[in-house]
Design a protein around this nucleic acid. Structure first.
Lengths: 190, 190
DNA sequence: ATCGTCTGAGACGAATTTGTCTCAAACGAT
DNA sequence: ATCGTTTGAGACAAATTCGTCTCAGACGAT
């Protein structure tokens, strides 16, 4: 069996998180495999990036499913929607930690298949934010699409913070949650 | 005089905002100039990118100065600090609109000079956020450095929103302001 | 021990990009 | 009209990356 696809992809992603422009040779080295072997698994660089992109989207999708995004949005139940939102944010932080480079990599955003899937996943989240607005959990004076954008922005912020060591991994979920819900203004202390 | 450096850089940045991996030939075409002429002004690609990076940082610095970031932080006056924060957010949105690609471009982040300047500018903003915390304008249970990160994240969100047409240009400042200060939770209606 | 499979090392050509160079044409100022 | 400057077009070599290929060695199963 030698080496598994998963190990290759995992190591490649880890390396790409640090250097998004790494060549196939660099990636092979980082994986601990010869360039020839890397090409035996992924016949071209684009194929590798496509696979990595799909993997990142898989994880994103799993995060949504684990949080019960779509069922919660359809239920209209404020409690379920609130729970789904909280769970989603936590899961998204984890995905960001693993697949951070995918957030801003241009090559991925350009690929039609990935873009389509990404849009699809985003729409599901927007549906959740819309449902949350109807349930009174999220303010209605911000477009749900923009709310989705702020979550994306917070993920980028987490990625940067983790990369530079400014943010402790165990603190990240709380920071995102607090910033997402309440921003930077002081809480109204009762 | 023929063509000015400013025009070249402006056109190059505009094009790089859409395609961050554009080659010198593509940039020359976008500028409306031959590749030879582009090389007469910037002897290498790295030199061009360095100049563009410095230009983006210039604009960022101008935004800070126009908002009076450092003086406000030093004054300790809550009113001045609050005004500086509001002004800063507005100016940052403008800079993001013009130099969005610089937010996430890897080549720029890697350059030592640019990284140093960027860190310096960020520290000034963090000083403002710290001062705002001491003045009670920003909650103290979030690290000032993280608050700076959220602003960065909101800028990335604005860039994406503008690029995809999800966010109207004139709406952007309000969205950023609201999200930064109060997040997505419904405002406590009095 | 042998066979089949997988791997690493490396050579190879193709394609792209970069930086340099030359030369002819266009342009403006005098 | 002429001179000096600037430009565009294109040729050129060098470097990098990519994808393919070959070949020898390592490995496990039988």
């Amino acid at each position: 069996m030698s080496i598994g696809l998963d190990q290759i992809m995992t190591a490649a992603i880890r390396h790409l998180n640090g250097d998004p422009t790494a060549s196939m040779a660099q990636l092979a080295g980082a994986v601990g495999v010869s360039r020839a072997t890397l090409h035996r698994h992924f016949s071209s660089r684009e194929e590798l990036m496509l696979a990595l992109g799909h993997r990142a989207l898989d994880r994103w999708q799993q995060a949504q499913e684990a949080a019960g995004v779509t069922p919660a949005a359809g239920s209209g139940d404020p409690d379920r929607i609130g729970a789904a939102l909280t769970a989603l944010l936590t899961h998204l932080v984890e995905v960001t930690d693993e697949y951070g480079f995918a957030l801003t990599d241009h090559a991925l955003a350009v690929h039609p298949d990935l873009a389509r899937r990404s849009d699809e996943l985003e729409e599901r989240e927007i549906a959740l934010y819309s449902a949350a607005q109807r349930a009174g959990l999220i303010r209605a004076d911000l477009p749900a699409r923009w709310v989705s954008g702020t979550v994306f922005g917070l993920c980028v912020a987490v990625r940067e913070g983790l990369r530079r060591g400014d943010v402790a991994r165990r603190e990240a979920p709380r920071l995102v949650r607090e910033s997402f819900w309440h921003g930077a203004a002081p809480r109204e202390t009762t």
